[in-house]
Amino acid sequence: MIVVFMCEHCGQGAANTAGVLRMEYDPRISIVPVPCAGRVGPREVLTAINNSAEAVSVVGCCFGACHYSNANMVTLRKMKIMKKFLQEMGYSMDCVTMYTSRAAEGDTALGDFEDVAAKADGEDCLGAARVE
């Protein structure tokens, strides 16, 4: 399972638009709605990984367009720390990612989904490590 936290403004908006347009994406992706990307922190990432997530991603609003001041930019730093953590543990940085999307454009969410799914299949990713 790939856990994707999506903010209720741009993130879920774009996913809804993609749904209305019947765009298809990887069935492993499981969307967790959150009010804002700023709601997601290291605790959510670690909980997802400790409960068998192959990859964890956060999708928020575009830079400068966060509906709650600049909370998406705060989470950006936290996710970078988590990326570094995974790398130091011998896993790929790609297991934790953070994207943005635009509510009116479904293909921005789809691009995020395709990228996170492709990255989750990487050699040093969590899914591969669990199979070993």
Binding site: K80, R102, D112, D115
Partner: peptide
């Protein structure tokens, strides 16, 4: 991470025209 919200962080533009 919250305290470091002003620290320089590497971002890039995706092929599907969003920031990441």
């Amino acid at each position: 991470g919250s305290l470091a919200a002003d620290v320089d962080v590497h971002t890039e533009a995706s092929e599907w025209t969003t920031d990441m």
